[in-house]
């Protein structure tokens, strides 16, 4: 899932300081699961903003809505009336949701309440780790199910580099060396031989850097 983290409330308040009424839109997708932009967090942010503005002598009216998914036009269409009544929309979705709202409501000031961090998952309560680099060319079948593209600080495909010691990455002692993990897993699976092949150059054109990517499924498109 997409992991996102709420911005500092002061920064969010500045984005809507000229507004008298704002709509806060949460998302029931990834950001609900990573506890940053679901129903609970949306209500808390709304009341926190109201309190801040009340203390500043410039009260703010808020309304809230939780979209099943903000990354789908179908689920943000029902917002039309609420959006119309507000001076601005604060999205608590990831960067995808913010853009869907902005595109759907071209006349409305839409701002992000979150910093979208990465694709990953929870590894213990209150901790999330990045697992996928969204590189568009998966090689997990060659690296024992552990991704060096995103979990190695250098994205090295023939690792580990000379900075790996005691299973730790040179960049940060709290960071596990992905290649140590790959080595251990391949060893346990009796597949160390697979690591002896020189891995070819990666096709980064499938990753970011070439403009926004697109996936087409002609079989699903309207004729």
């Amino acid at each position: 899932m997409i992991i996102a983290q709420q911005k500092n409330i002061k920064d969010i308040a500045v984005m809507v300081e000229a507004c008298e009424k704002v709509l806060l839109v949460g998302c029931a997708g990834c950001v609900t699961v990573c506890l940053s932009g679901g129903e609970k967090e949306t209500e808390i942010l709304a009341s926190a903003l109201r309190i801040m503005r009340k203390l500043a002598g410039k009260p703010l009216k808020t309304s809230t809505y939780i979209a099943t998914r903000q990354c789908d036009p179908e689920f943000i269409t029902p917002l039309e009336k609420l959006v119309g009544d507000a001076d601005a929309v604060i999205s608590l979705a990831c960067g995808v949701g913010v853009q869907y709202l902005a595109e759907k409501y071209p006349d409305k000031w839409v701002v992000p309440a979150q910093d979208t961090l990465f694709a990953g998952g929870s590894t213990e309560h209150g901790r999330w780790d990045e697992k996928c680099g969204l590189c568009g060319d998966c090689i997990l079948h060659r690296t024992g199910g552990i991704c060096p593209v995103i979990r190695c600080a250098k994205s090295i495909l023939n690792g580990p580099c000379g900075g790996s010691q005691n299973g730790r990455c040179e960049v940060d002692q709290d960071m596990t060396c992905a290649w140590q993990l790959i080595y251990e897993r391949m060893k346990a699976l009796g597949r160390l031989r697979d690591l002896t092949a020189v891995q070819p150059l990666k096709d980064w054109s499938k990753a970011m850097g070439g403009g926004p990517r697109r996936m087409l499924r002609e079989d699903l498109m309207a004729k």
Partner: peptide, 19 residues
């Protein structure tokens, strides 16, 4: 190229050198 006998995993450093 370079090799680091003092990095880990120790045994794999030789495999990587071979590579």
């Amino acid at each position: 190229a370079v090799a680091n006998p003092f990095a880990d995993p120790f045994e794999y450093r030789v495999d990587r050198l071979e590579k």
